[in-house]
Amino acid sequence: MGIREREKNKKEIEFLAIKGYIISDSFVSFYKEYGQLYIDIKVKGNDRVIDFNIYTPVSYDYDEVIINDYPKIIGSKNSIPIGNIDGTSYLIIDENKKIYSLYDGSVLIIGENPDNALNNLFSKEWREFQELPIPDWW
């Protein structure tokens, strides 16, 4: 990774910390490897755009929900945005490197780790992902 990439990652990590996110090692390692990756592919005949850009989820003041509510729903200590799918379904990572999709009140498990998640995003339709139940309090 060059100096510009390290500086860019550092600024993005600082940006998230200022917004209140707890920066986990899983996020830092993920973002160093995949940050700013943009993929436009067809999955079983359907277009899918995967954009590992942290600014889309946080640009809609969705931070409080990602910081406070989603960790309770996924059973983790924290969650941090890592990007989006098709500009609407947010991607988050927890402290154990597990990746989830957040869309319109639903939570899908995308993968147990980044490599597994990418493989799933490249090969599975939405209905093939496991959906977590949303608690009554939400």
Score class of each variant (00 low, 15 high):
M1N: 13
I3R: 11
R6F: 07
E7Q: 14
K8T: 15
K11M: 07
I13Y: 01
E14V: 14
E14N: 13
G20R: 03
I22T: 14
D25T: 10
S26Y: 04
S26K: 06
F27K: 00
V28W: 02
S29Q: 14
S29R: 11
Y31N: 00
K32S: 12
E33H: 10
Y34W: 15
Q36K: 14
Q36H: 15
Y38C: 06
Y38S: 09
D40S: 13
D40F: 15
I41N: 08
K42V: 13
K42H: 12
V43G: 08
K44P: 07
G45Y: 10
N46L: 15
D47C: 14
R48F: 11
I50N: 11
D51L: 04
F52T: 06
F52N: 11
I54W: 00
Y55I: 12
P57A: 13
V58M: 05
Y60F: 15
Y62S: 13
Y62W: 07
D63I: 03
D63G: 07
E64R: 09
E64G: 12
V65R: 09
V65Y: 10
V65A: 15
V65D: 11
I66K: 06
I67V: 10
D69K: 03
D69F: 03
Y70C: 06
Y70L: 00
K72G: 02
I74G: 04
S76Q: 06
S76G: 13
S76R: 07
N78T: 10
S79V: 03
S79D: 08
P81H: 04
I82Y: 02
G83S: 04
N84C: 09
N84H: 06
D86G: 05
Y90C: 08
I92G: 04
I93L: 00
I93F: 00
I93W: 00
N96C: 12
N96H: 14
K97N: 09
I99C: 04
Y100I: 06
S101H: 07
S101R: 07
L102N: 01
Y103I: 02
D104M: 14
G105T: 08
G105H: 10
S106I: 11
L108S: 08
I109C: 10
I109D: 01
I109V: 12
I109S: 01
E112W: 07
E112C: 00
N113K: 09
N113R: 03
P114V: 04
D115V: 13
L118N: 05
L118E: 07
N119H: 15
N119F: 12
N120E: 08
L121H: 03
F122I: 01
F122W: 05
F122P: 03
F122R: 09
S123H: 08
S123F: 09
K124T: 02
R127L: 10
R127M: 07
E128V: 12
E128D: 12
E131T: 02
L132I: 14
P133R: 08
P133Q: 06
P135I: 13
D136P: 11
W138H: 14
